[in-house]
């Protein structure tokens, strides 16, 4: 397997402990003056990437790590307002080698998952990445789409919701185990590949103080979203709904059992 060049996209989200509130104009969640932090799923992704590197560099080597390939680069990336520098700093303090901040002003259109995936596809090409590890979702929008879309755009293999990532003994493949209702489902692929991470993959480390200081010296490249990447990434593919926004939705109805469901579907003319 070639040396891994890992891209870890990360997102700055409202801290998981904060109770989100709808903003005054009822269009979205109130974000100003609210504590933000690194999306918890992205912490898992960085930890996963750093552990891949440590499989070769740590002494003694962690168990079952013999077949892990060399890690040549861990690149953290975030797109959003300048404040996203904070989460990139955290990512670098945890062990990412360098970072890119794609600046999207507060007033500009915010990026929807497809736009994010397009931006990432560009970065992957430009930076020669061969493995993308990203959170299965961000805890603000909970869309859960970016990883799959990115794999589609790149034409790469995709393994979602990783609970375990390992490398096959011949060194050629990546095995990703995912927890499903009935147990564990394992998929096998080869780089280049996109993997999304799930909760039980690992326990992310806290950055140590010396690593926080080292992160200050690591490269953080800032680029405008419009320029370097070819597209003016559009978030406008979903129309703003009339008076809808983040206010409470009506919600669906509930049925008691399968018979009830069939009856209801017939009632709606779906069957």
């Amino acid at each position: 397997m070639p040396p891994l060049r890992i891209l870890v996209p990360v997102k700055r989200v409202i801290d998981y402990a904060v109770k989100p509130r709808v903003n005054a104009s009822h269009t979205a969640i109130e974000t100003s003056g609210v504590k933000h932090s690194l999306n918890p799923f992205d912490e898992l992704s960085i930890e996963a990437a750093v552990r891949m590197r440590e499989a070769r560099t740590k002494k003694p080597p962690p168990p079952n790590s013999a077949s892990t390939p060399e890690v040549a680069d861990i690149l953290a990336l975030s797109a959003g307002p300048p404040k996203c520098a904070d989460v990139l700093r955290t990512a670098m303090a945890m062990g990412a080698d360098r970072s890119i901040l794609i600046e999207v002003g507060e007033k500009e259109e915010q990026l929807e998952p497809l736009a994010v995936a397009k931006v990432l596809a560009n970065v992957v090409e430009k930076e020669g990445c061969n493995l993308v590890i990203l959170g299965k979702q961000s805890i603000d929008d909970d869309a859960g789409q970016t990883g799959g879309m990115l794999a589609g755009l790149l034409g790469w293999g995709f393994a979602g919701q990783a609970a375990k990532i390992s490398f096959t003994e011949d060194g050629g493949g990546i095995e990703v185990a995912k927890e499903v209702d009935g147990g564990v489902e394992t998929v096998r692929g080869r780089v280049p590949m996109v993997v999304t991470t799930d909760l039980r993959l690992n326990e992310p480390r806290y950055a140590s103080l010396p690593n926080i200081m080292k992160a200050k010296k690591k490269e953080m490249r800032k680029v405008g979203v419009g320029g370097v990447f070819g597209w003016r990434a559009r978030g406008g593919e979903v129309e703003d709904g009339e008076g809808g926004g983040a206010e409470e939705e009506g919600g669906g109805g509930k049925v008691e059992d399968v018979d009830g469901l069939v009856g209801r579907l017939k009632e709606l003319g779906a069957l």
Binding site: A85, A93, Y206, S208, I212, M213, K216
Partner: peptide, 14 residues
């Protein structure tokens, strides 16, 4: 400072 707040956050979590 950025370093100090990162430090505070890390130590709190730890």
């Amino acid at each position: 400072s950025e370093t100090e707040s990162l430090m505070a956050e890390t130590v709190r979590k730890y």
